[in-house]
Simulated scan of single mutants.
Amino acid sequence: MTRALAAIRRQAYRVPLTRPWRDARGTVSTREGWLVCVEAADGQRGWGEAACLPTLGTGTATDIDAALAWAADSLVGLEAAEALERLEGLEALEGASILAGAPAARCALEFALLDLSARQAGMPLYLWLRADAAPEVVVNAAIGGLDDGTPQRLATAAAAGYPVAKLKLGLAAAEREWPALERLLAGRPPGCALRLDVNGAWPVEVAAQLLPRLCGHGIEALEEPATAAGDAVLARWQAALDYPLAVDESLPARADTDPLPVQRQVLKPMLLGGPRRALRLAQRRAVSSVVSSTLETAVGLWGCAHLAAAVPVAGGRPLAHGLDTGGWLARLLGPALPADGGVTLSDAPGLGFEPDMG
Rank of each mutant, 00 (worst) to 15 (best):
E224K: 08
A229Y: 11
E249H: 08
L75S: 03
E182V: 15
N140W: 05
C52V: 13
A348S: 09
V311T: 00
R176S: 03
L171M: 12
G145R: 10
G341F: 08
G101P: 01
K166M: 12
D242Y: 03
V204R: 06
E82L: 07
E296C: 13
G33Q: 14
L114Y: 13
A92M: 07
L93G: 00
W21Q: 14
Q238F: 11
P349M: 09
A6R: 11
V139P: 02
P189C: 01
A201C: 00
S29M: 13
P124R: 15
A7C: 03
L93F: 14
M270P: 05
L241E: 07
L125Y: 04
L301M: 13
R3V: 15
A61Y: 01
L301E: 05
L99A: 10
A83Y: 05
R22N: 02
E136Y: 09
R31A: 13
A232D: 14
S97M: 05
T257N: 06
T62Y: 14
R331S: 04
V28F: 02
W47R: 05
G358V: 15
R317V: 05
L129T: 02
R22I: 12
F353A: 10
A235N: 07
Q263Y: 08
C107M: 05
E354A: 15
L129C: 09
G350D: 06
Q120R: 06
P275T: 15
T58P: 02
P151D: 12
R14E: 15
A336W: 13
D248R: 06
